[in-house]
């Protein structure tokens, strides 16, 4: 089996930077469970898709062997800085770039120091892969790709890992409902902004927890129709494309990130 574990995790830096804030504590604790499960699955590489790394021309892949530095989020800069320590599986990245041609998608790698890695990728890596020990394969979110292309890209990446005989963990980084508080709030009182979003988030999580890919895809369609979702939930499309199928999931945490919905979910493969 190439894909040995798969997770949905939030990309907001708030639960990482302020783990002491009660509404965000469950998400941070959920992330710790993912870290343990991920490490227990002994992957050779971590396949990452974050809704926050945008591309508009071609499909981009992070090709820098080792990225270090500090990152300041453009919105939440007052909560602190994020340390970057990422290593790429460059052999697998190169294979993914080449593999894109086979599925009709133009692609290229980015290999530059000071590259502005997105907040979601940094937060997730710091939570579950401290020290950057597991090498990464990071794909950008091309804004013009729909769920279908996103699934194809993920499946192609798994195929390339399979050819290299590698065990792969999948991280889908993004939120649920995207409606946030657009004025200052007391962060200790953070909650899901709209009750309807809260209900929709819980329905989707229930479908993931108790379903398979087919039923979850149907639930995702309903979710996207009725909710302003984070990037149309393309990060879940990525996970579905990579895993092919799954048998339910464990929801380790669910909560708000400044009004938006977020969850930490481990899929049963």
């Amino acid at each position: 089996m190439t894909v040995v574990s798969a997770f949905l995790v939030p990309g907001s830096p708030l639960p990482y930077l302020r783990q002491d804030n009660p509404p965000w504590q469950p998400l941070a604790a959920g992330y710790e469970k993912v870290r343990d499960a991920l490490q227990a699955s002994k992957p050779d590489a971590l396949l990452i898709y974050s809704t926050q790394w945008f591309a508009v021309l071609d499909q981009l892949w992070q090709a820098r062997p080792h990225l270090t530095g500090e990152h300041v989020d453009e919105n939440w800069y007052e909560y602190g800085d994020l340390t970057i320590d990422l290593r790429s599986d460059t052999d697998l990245v190169d294979a993914c770039i080449a593999g894109c041609a086979d599925i009709g998608i133009r692609a290229k790698g980015v290999n530059y120091d000071h590259f502005p890695v997105d907040t979601g990728t940094i937060v997730a890596n710091n939570f579950v892969n401290p020290g950057g020990k597991i090498p990464l394969v990071i794909a950008a979110n091309n804004l013009y790709h729909g769920p279908g292309e996103t699934e194809k890209l993920a499946a192609m990446a798994v195929e390339q890992a399979d050819k290299q005989g590698k065990r792969l963990a999948v991280l889908a980084i993004g939120g649920l409902s995207a409606a946030y508080f657009d004025e200052e709030i007391d962060i200790a009182d953070d909650r899901i902004r709209h009750d309807a979003d809260d209900a929709a988030n819980r329905q989707l999580l229930d479908a993931l927890a108790n379903g398979d890919r087919r039923s979850a895809s149907e639930a995702l369609g309903r979710f996207n129709e009725g909710t302003k979702a984070d990037m149309g939930m393309k990060h879940l499309s990525w996970l579905f494309g990579a895993t092919g199928d799954f048998k339910g999931a464990r929801v380790h945490a669910y909560g708000p990130t400044y009004g938006a919905g977020a969850a930490v979910v481990e899929f049963n493969l």
């Binding site: 000071h114 590259f115 400044y258």
Partner: peptide, 23 residues
């Protein structure tokens, strides 16, 4: 920015800016 209108408030800023899309 999601919450309001923000203003740079540091007297001097420097560094290397790499465009995430056109790096």
């Amino acid at each position: 920015t999601l919450v309001g209108h923000h203003f740079l408030g540091v007297p001097h800023l420097e560094g290397k800016s790499v465009d995430p899309i056109f790096s």
